[in-house]
Simulated assay, not measured.
Amino acid sequence: MAIFLQTMSAKLGIATGQNLPQLCGRVFSRKINWFFWVAAELAAMATDLAEFLGATLGFYLLFHIPMAFAGALTAVITFLIVYLSKYGQRVIEVIITGFVAIICIAYTLEIFLAKPDWASAGLHTLVPTIPGGEAVLIAVGMLGATVMPHVIYLHSQLVQHRNKDSTEAEKKRHLKMERLDITIAMNIAFIVNAAMVIVSAAVFYKNGVAVDSIEQAHQSLTPLLGAASSGAFGIALIASGLSSSAVGTMAGQTIMQGFVGLKINDNVTRLITMIPGMIIILCGVNPMNALVLSQVTLSFILPVPIISMMLLTKRKDLMGSLVNKPVTNVIGWTIAGVIIAANVILLYLTFTGKV
C-alpha cells in the first residue's frame, strides 16, 4: 500500500513538475482547497506530536531527566535540524538516512535478544488476526503511522530537485528510478516496523506483561532481555522522533505553500507544531495514549490526499503519458475504500463501547 501511494505521488510530481498541494490549488475550488489544507495541517500536527513525544520519551528514558527538560532538548535538536535544511535537501536526506540506520541497528539487536518464534511470526504475518476492538484501534493507528498523509504530499515535492526531465522518455526513466528507490525504502521500513511488533509480541505478550505506558515497556525490557535491550529501545525512540521531525518540517512547508500560497519561517512552523506535545508533557497525559490517538487521526485523514491524488493522476491533460492505467485506478480507489472501511469500523466499535 505504502509503495503504491508513494510511487503515485512521485509520478504526479515527475509528470507535472508540481507537487500535490500545488496541483490541488490549481485544479480544485478555493473551498475544497481550504478543506484539503485544514486536513493536511491536522495530519502534520498529529505527526509532529508523535515525533516530538517519541524523541522526548527517548531522552527521558535514556538519561533519566525530567520530561520537561527532555522536551526542551528535543526542541533544541529539532531546531538544529531545521537550521541545517538551509544547506539543501541532500543534507537532510543524509541526516534521515543516519537516523534510520540507527533504528535498524537498534531493532536488529532487539530481535537478536528477544529470540522470537519465527514460525509463529511468519504465520501471523500471512494470516493476521484482530481479536477485539482495541486491536482494531491499534491496527488503524499502525495504518496511519506507516502510510502517513503528509508524506504523500511531500514525495511529489521531493522529486522536483531531480526533475530535470523534458521528454516523456526521461520522465519514465526518472519514475523507474524513483520506483526502485521507494521499493527499497518502504521494504526497509516494513522490516523495521515488523521488528517492533515481533519484539513486542516475543517479549511482552509471551511473558504475560501488560504494557500501559512507554516507561513500563522500557522498564520491563531490562529484567526480561537486559540493559542493552532497554538502551536500544530508548535510542530507537530518539532516532525515530528526530528523523521524522525533518520530514515533518519539509512536509509542512510543502502543504502551506501549495494549498494557500503562504510561506512561514520553518522555525515558526516548528515552534507551533511543538506546542501540543509540550502541553501533553506538562499536563501529565499518558504519552502512549497520545501517540496511538495521533496515529489514528492520521488514518482518518489519509483518504483525503489519496482521493485528491487519484482524481489528478487519472487526467491525461495533467499527466501526459504517465496517466493512470485502468488497473492503477482500481488499485488506488480500492486502497482508499479499505482505509475508509477500517475507519468506519473503528468508529462503530468506539460508539458501541467495544474499544
Score class of each variant (00 low, 15 high):
288 M>I: 14
117 D>Q: 05
142 M>K: 10
352 T>Q: 07
189 A>K: 05
245 S>C: 15
24 C>E: 02
236 A>C: 06
201 A>M: 07
124 H>S: 11
278 M>S: 12
19 N>V: 10
238 I>M: 12
102 I>R: 06
246 A>P: 06
111 I>H: 07
207 N>Y: 01
111 I>W: 08
70 A>W: 02
10 A>W: 02
277 G>M: 02
292 V>D: 00
6 Q>V: 15
151 V>Y: 01
78 T>E: 01
274 M>W: 04
296 V>L: 05
98 G>N: 07
253 Q>M: 11
72 A>G: 03
59 F>I: 05
290 A>F: 10
95 I>K: 01
20 L>N: 04
280 I>N: 07
212 D>Q: 13
35 F>G: 09
227 A>K: 10
219 Q>D: 14
12 L>C: 15
231 G>C: 09
151 V>A: 14
252 G>W: 00
103 I>H: 03
245 S>E: 06
299 S>D: 00
302 L>N: 07
224 L>A: 13
256 M>Q: 09
44 A>K: 00
330 V>W: 10
96 I>N: 14
179 R>M: 14
216 Q>S: 07
294 S>D: 08
295 Q>V: 02
79 F>Y: 11
80 L>S: 12
307 I>S: 05
219 Q>Y: 12
108 T>W: 12
339 I>P: 00
164 K>C: 08
295 Q>Y: 05
65 I>Q: 03
22 Q>C: 04
77 I>Q: 01
179 R>L: 10
313 T>I: 14
214 I>G: 04
31 K>Q: 10
52 F>W: 02
296 V>N: 04
147 V>M: 09
8 M>S: 12
99 F>L: 15
204 F>S: 06
328 T>V: 12
4 F>A: 10
165 D>P: 00
94 V>P: 00
260 V>C: 08
214 I>H: 05
15 A>F: 09
70 A>C: 06
257 Q>R: 11
171 K>R: 09
247 V>S: 13
9 S>G: 14
179 R>Q: 09
320 G>N: 05
50 A>T: 09
42 L>W: 03
99 F>K: 07
172 K>R: 09
63 F>P: 02
264 I>F: 09
350 T>S: 14
90 R>S: 15
65 I>R: 05
355 V>E: 07
228 A>W: 15
215 E>L: 11
71 G>T: 03
219 Q>I: 01
203 V>E: 00
37 W>N: 13
123 L>K: 13
266 D>Y: 08
191 I>M: 15
97 T>Y: 04
305 P>D: 06
336 A>T: 01
182 I>R: 08
318 L>C: 06
211 V>D: 01
12 L>A: 15
113 L>D: 03
342 A>G: 11
25 G>V: 08
274 M>S: 10
84 L>S: 12
54 G>F: 06
318 L>E: 03
143 L>D: 07
87 Y>A: 14
13 G>F: 09
219 Q>E: 14
275 I>V: 15
316 K>L: 04
24 C>L: 04
204 F>Y: 12
194 A>H: 13
71 G>Q: 02
162 R>A: 05
199 V>H: 03
182 I>A: 08
243 S>M: 13
201 A>D: 06
350 T>Y: 12
6 Q>P: 01
81 I>M: 13
275 I>F: 04
302 L>S: 08
